[in-house]
Design a protein around this nucleic acid. Structure first.
Length: 424
RNA sequence: GGAGAGGUGGCCGAGUUGGUCGAAGGCGGCGGUUUGCUAAACCGUUAUACGGUUAAUAGCCGUAUCGGGGGUUCAAAUCCCCCCCUCUCCGCCA
């Protein structure tokens, strides 16, 4: 959520920035008009209230002096009903304004490249050597079936499309990756491990920005105000929702493994096959809550923390800065990490590292006190995948496959998996 | 799921025959006095949001906030209704 004052006092700047995302200037001017009306209502209502309060005191005094107060009572009855009406109008107005604000995306950071499609994302750096095969490499689904690591058909029988059984070494590899990632984040990084609730309410999802706009992407529990989390970002960032933190609590750095659930309404095409896009997938997330000063350095370090895992796994990847059209609703700036997928001869997203400035903090009323006597301020929030586990599983199979169909396990992961090769 | 008890300011805790209660008292925090230093003691201060005024995110004025929402009333922390949460007991269950 953007600051209402900023929207109304620097409308032109806001309109100009949001036009890069294709937001209509009318959205902003409507909000300012709603706010003007709201202010007028507040002033009228408060004048009535003031009158009520002062006359109430008179009534108390008159009664103590054993005098009549019938005129005052009659008069106040009228004022009370006027105030009531006005209050209802004001409430409706404020609800409208709040709702309008919740649908406005975040401002883009000045460094975000201009672009209309993901093709205009800008490559920042590349790491690792692409594998060279003396044979035609298989895709992860073919490899997985040959090695009995998964069963997509049986999952479809039970749950429909976009679900998978991982079996044997496939399941072990998944579990090993989760532990490996959490260990790196907590032992080499300064992240505090959390295991959060996987079901959360609507306010929580509004706090991080999934609601109200992206309701169609979520799984909702029938007959309850609860949703399956689409990412651990939601419970981790909301951990301190509504609280005022002391300065020494910052920076907050959390990591969590969770399953993630997404309805994937509207996605199609090449991602339908295999494990790339599932309704349920595992992810290890990292989240930071930091002071606004130097918060962009935290975006760099958070991105590097995610990169470190790819490096340890010896997986070739590149870092891209998302362009204006590709940057998500709540983010001011995002780096994607893309891992090399040999069967597709392309880099595919495996992590998304985003800065939200105070957009989420404002929505969830999360604040901190810079000094013990200072007024509370909104901190900045950031998050990234470190990493998407299923896609890492895919990348390992495809990048380390051998001519005979076996798959080598990267050295750093071998202690976790308990073998250096998966073969028939 | 059933029965009972309770939710008050950073914390503890008064306040329920409705009115002078944003709310006693204590603790903690902040500022100060005293004092070789520290401690103790004493004095003062101590919420958030919104609106107005203003150069001001300083002051001042106003309004709201006693789990959330609604109702009764001129007036509600106090009365009524609904919901949420916590605790105790019972049931069930990994």
């Amino acid at each position: 959520m953007l600051d209402l004052k900023l929207i109304c006092e620097e409308s032109n700047r806001v309109i100009q920035n949001l036009s890069r995302r294709g937001v209509d200037s009318k959205t902003i001017s409507d909000i300012c008009a709603l706010n003007q009306d709201r202010k007028k209502m507040i002033q009228e209502l408060e004048a009535l209230r003031q009158k009520q309060n002062s006359v109430s005191k008179d009534i108390v005094r008159l009664k103590q002096e054993k005098k009549e107060a019938t005129d005052e009572l009659k008069n106040m009855k009228k004022v009370a009903s006027e105030a009531k009406d006005l209050e209802l109008k004001l409430q409706a107005q404020e609800a409208k304004l709040k709702d309008a604000l919740l649908w406005v995306p975040n401002l883009l950071h000045e460094s975000v490249p201009e672009g209309k499609t993901s093709a205009q994302n800008v490559e920042i750096r590349k790491w690792g050597k692409l594998p060279e095969f003396q044979f035609t490499p298989l895709d992860h689904e073919q490899l997985g079936e040959k090695l009995n690591l998964l069963s997509i058909k049986r999952a479809a029988t039970l749950s429909g499309s976009r679900f998978t059984f991982l079996t044997g070494w496939g399941a072990k590899l998944e579990r090993s990756l989760i532990n490996f990632m959490l260990d790196i984040n907590t032992q080499e990084g300064a992240y505090h491990e959390i295991f959060p609730p996987l079901l959360v309410n609507a306010e929580t999802l509004t706090g991080t920005g999934q609601l109200p706009k992206f309701k169609q992407d979520l799984f909702k529990i029938e007959n309850h105000d609860l949703y399956l989390i689409p990412t651990a970002e939601v419970p981790l960032t909301n951990f301190y929702r509504g609280e005022i933190l002391s300065k020494d609590a910052l920076p907050v750095q959390f990591t969590a493994y969770t399953p993630c659930f997404r309805s994937e309404a509207g996605s199609y095409g090449k991602d339908v096959r295999g494990l790339i896009r599932q309704h349920q997938f595992n992810k290890v997330e990292i989240v930071k809550i930091v002071e606004p000063e130097h918060s962009y350095q935290h975006l760099e370090s958070l991105t590097q923390d995610a990169e470190k895992i790819l490096q340890r796994l010896e997986l070739p990847y590149r870092v891209v800065a998302l362009c204006s059209a590709d940057t998500g609703f709540g983010a001011t700036k995002t780096y994607d990490l893309e891992v090399w997928i040999p069967s597709q001869k392309t880099y595919r997203e495996i992590s998304s590292c985003s800065h939200f400035e105070d957009f989420q903090a404002r929505r969830m009323n999360l604040r901190y006190r810079p000094t013990s006597t200072a007024k509370p301020q909104y901190p900045h929030t950031l998050n990234g995948s470190a990493l998407a586990v299923g896609r890492t599983w895919v990348a390992i199979l495809e990048n380390f496959q051998q001519k005979d169909g076996s798959v080598l396990i990267p050295k750093a992961l071998q202690p976790y998996v308990g073998t250096d090769i998966i073969k028939m």
